[in-house]
Design a protein around this nucleic acid. Structure first.
Lengths: 228, 228
DNA sequence: CCTCACAACTGGTCCAACCAGTTGACAACT
DNA sequence: AGTTGTCAACTGGTTGGACCAGTTGTGAGG
């Protein structure tokens, strides 16, 4: 048995995960009222405050609607949940996680291609330098998956920074977190992309040359291979 | 004075907003430790439980890092915050809200164009019908801004549903919520697009005909006019 | 100078009570 | 009968205080 840091999950965290799962899986249907906080506290055998912390987070995620006096109700996650809920969706069983991963990768491609173009158009010289440097970090010989993921994240972070768009920046955070959370088992298809040092260098060169068309084409070559 | 529902903000909600603002504006710098929960409770003159609910939400947003025993520390939002934080960023003053809106609209364009293409490729017949129907809802004569926003949301929801990508679906939720929250004052530039019944009908027709190239071009015509 | 134990923090959890809205049932009035 | 008003029994919102469980810095002892 490997020695690793003990996982300490706060009670409200467990409750949050359980209720999230219950909702995303559909066992708690939209419009359906949740049990009262007092009932939940009794059912989970925890204090009511822990339940409240979890419910507040569910509300922030757009999964429930809370109103004083009235009952807390389940919302339709397809219409109210944010992008950050996608990860939980993958582990809830409501949708095959392979489908979620594919969707995630597809969105990553759309944003990545656009970010590459915008980076070529708008990046400052020092940001261009960072992009080129990050591209050189891709190893010439294959290494560990985790390392490759980190290198890839640094590269695309540099590209998105150069694109000078905060929405892309924050969206990248969410996507990267999602990919990291889902784990590398489902991401075998990405390895080939991660390991492609040549194409990353070419893309960086195109961006540095401010060649938007080449950047779009090269980014597409890298990011679209999975779906097609 | 207009008669409208009384705004009732929960205490933890106020604390959450205040701390979010404090962090995004930079007055609380990354790595800097937050005051302890007890100190915050005293400063805000509320119970510690309310502080805790707010901190849990800040943690979920990726704005702080909480660890038992140690102090709660501020994280760098550029590297940890998710897409849903963008709205708060617009009102924090850290970045001109016009910039945030422009970035939001830019991302909306990238996703919208891609979604239109994917919808043309993958939508089921009944989903195509919904798209066409939604396009016909754009008014022939200009109406109220709020109505137009709602019509536009229905149309793009139909398109994204047809694209059959959950990440796009949830991302659209976040973007729509952001646009709604920021308010229509900053969105005058979108009105022209919202009112363009003809182009929406044309786009719907292209999607229905499964003409991906036309869909890409028409969606671009609609969504890219702002930046160019 | 190093080591280790302890005191003084930090966040995590619980209990118990009360405040503040919502809802539905039911009596009273028209 | 139909409407109105009242009230009890819910719901979530907030508070206080106590204690548990980790972390961290300090200072006595080696």
């Amino acid at each position: 048995m490997p020695i690793a840091p003990v996982v300490r999950a706060a009670v409200s965290e467990v409750v949050f995960a359980a209720l999230t799962d219950e909702i995303l899986s559909g066992r708690l249907a939209p419009e359906e009222p949740l049990p009262s906080e007092r009932e939940l506290a009794e059912a989970f055998e925890v204090n009511r405050h822990a339940i409240r912390e979890a419910l507040k987070r569910l509300q922030q995620s757009g999964l429930v609607s809370i109103s004083q006096g009235g009952r807390t109700r389940v919302l339709d996650w397809r219409g109210h949940a944010g992008l950050d809920t996608l990860v939980a969706l993958a582990t809830s069983g409501a949708v095959p996680s392979a489908k979620v991963v594919a969707d995630l990768v597809e969105m990553r491609a759309a944003l990545g291609i656009d970010a590459a173009v915008l980076c070529a158009r708008r990046a400052k010289p020092e940001q261009l330098a960072v992009v080129v440097e990050a591209a050189h970090a891709y190893p010439e010989t294959p290494g560990a998956t985790a390392d490759l993921t980190a290198v890839d994240l640094v590269f695309w972070t540099a590209v998105v920074d150069g694109a000078d768009n905060l929405a892309y920046r924050l969206g990248l955070n969410t996507l990267a977190e999602g990919i990291a959370a889902i784990g590398h088992e489902h991401l075998a298809g990405l390895l080939e992309e991660y390991a492609d040092r040549g194409r990353h260098l070419a893309l960086a060169a195109a961006i540095e040359a401010r060649d938007e068309d080449a950047a779009r084409r090269l980014a597409g070559d890298l990011l679209l291979r999975h779906g097609a």
